[in-house]
Amino acid sequence: QEELVKAFKALLKEEKFSSQGEIVAALQEQGFDNINQSKVSRMLTKFGAVRTRNAKMEMVYCLPAELGV
């Protein structure tokens, strides 16, 4: 569980995922086979993730800066 949270936060820091499906796929690539869209959705809510525009003006998920991840 701890490893999943770390990987999840690291992915969001990249600010390149525009959908929950993309986050699920990226986590599965890292070996988290039991991850699915509903789990990702709950984690996004739990950590207060928001959708914002990145440098390329794409809408992407990211974590609020005050979490200091």
Score class of each variant (00 low, 15 high):
Ala65Trp: 11
Leu44Asp: 01
Met57Phe: 12
Glu3His: 10
Lys13Ala: 12
Glu3Ser: 12
Glu58Thr: 05
Val60Pro: 02
Met59Cys: 03
Leu27Val: 01
Leu11Glu: 00
Gln28Arg: 14
Met57Ser: 10
Ser41Val: 11
Asp33Tyr: 11
Pro64Trp: 04
Ser41Met: 09
Leu44Ile: 09
Ser38Asp: 14
Arg42Tyr: 15
Met59Trp: 15
Ala25Pro: 00
Lys13Tyr: 08
Gly48Glu: 06
Leu67Gly: 14
Ile23Val: 04
Lys13Met: 13
Lys16Cys: 11
Thr52Cys: 15
Ala55Pro: 07
Lys6Asp: 08
Val5Asn: 13
Asn36Pro: 05
Met57Gly: 15
Cys62His: 07
Leu44Val: 05
Ser38Val: 11
Val50Arg: 09
Met43Gln: 01
Glu58Gly: 05
Leu4Ile: 08
Thr52Ser: 10
Met43Leu: 14
Leu11Met: 09
Leu27Pro: 00
Val24Phe: 06
Ser41Pro: 01
Phe8Leu: 09
Ser19Pro: 01
Phe17Cys: 12
Gln30Asp: 04
Gly68Glu: 15
Ala25Met: 11
Tyr61Lys: 01
Ala10Leu: 11
Gln1Phe: 12
Ser38Leu: 11
Thr45Ser: 11
Val40Phe: 02
Met59Tyr: 14
Ser38Trp: 13
Ala25Thr: 10
Glu66His: 11
Met59Phe: 12
Met59Gly: 03
Glu66Ala: 07
Phe32Glu: 01
Val5Phe: 14
Gln20Tyr: 09
Met43Thr: 00
Glu15Ser: 07
Leu12Ser: 00
Gly21Leu: 14
Gln28Ser: 09
Arg42Gln: 14
Asn36His: 06
Phe32Ala: 01
Cys62Ser: 14
Lys39Leu: 14
Arg42Met: 15
Lys6Gln: 13
Phe32Lys: 00
Glu14Asp: 07
Asp33Ser: 13
Gln37Ile: 12
Leu11Ser: 02
Lys13Asp: 06
Ala7Arg: 05
Arg53Ala: 13
Gly21Asn: 13
Gln28Val: 12
Glu22Trp: 03
Gln28Lys: 15
Lys16Gly: 04
Lys6His: 10
Met43Trp: 07
Gln30Ile: 10
Glu3Met: 12
Glu3Gln: 12
Gly68Asn: 09
Gly48Ser: 05
Ala55Asn: 13
Ser38Gly: 11
Lys13Asn: 08
Val50Tyr: 11
Lys13Arg: 14
Leu67Trp: 04
Gly48Pro: 01
Glu14Gly: 06
Leu27Asn: 00
Leu27Lys: 00
Ala26His: 13
Tyr61Glu: 01
Gln1Ser: 11
Lys6Pro: 04
Gly31His: 04
Phe8Thr: 03
Leu27Met: 06
Ser18Lys: 15
